[in-house]
């Protein structure tokens, strides 16, 4: 059984999940995620030796011909962007470097 979830663990998960949580959210989620993990622990006692996992109920390969189709137009793709340079056909984001 994993050790209880700490506030530092929750801060690390938030970083992985790209969420800038407030100190209040960190406190709340430390308690609530701990409770939820405590609840889901029950399945760890089940014997699943040799049981294949189900990731999907339709475990079959899906193939289709590799055909070129008309994609979403560039103006349509940019129309919902919070910031864009439509004339250049680009999304704009804050400085990366």
């Amino acid at each position: 059984m994993p050790t209880a979830l700490t506030r530092a663990d929750v801060a690390r998960i938030a970083e992985l999940a790209r969420l800038d949580l407030t100190p209040e959210e960190l406190d709340l989620f430390t308690r609530q995620l701990g409770d939820i993990l405590g609840y889901v622990e029950q399945i760890r006692d089940l014997d699943t030796t040799g049981v294949a996992p189900t990731s999907h109920v339709l475990n079959r390969p899906v193939e289709r011909p590799d055909l070129v189709v008309t994609p979403l137009s560039r103006p349509d793709a940019l129309a919902n962007a919070p910031d864009a340079a439509p004339e250049a056909g680009l999304f704009k984001v804050p400085r990366v470097l």
Partner: peptide, 24 residues
């Protein structure tokens, strides 16, 4: 920078239950 924009956008944009589930 870009990372801060992602992190704050998602914290502002998602409600508590969605954040809880993304975290879990």
């Amino acid at each position: 920078g870009l990372q801060q924009m992602y992190d704050r956008t998602r914290d502002e944009g998602f409600g508590a239950e969605v954040k809880r589930r993304i975290m879990l």
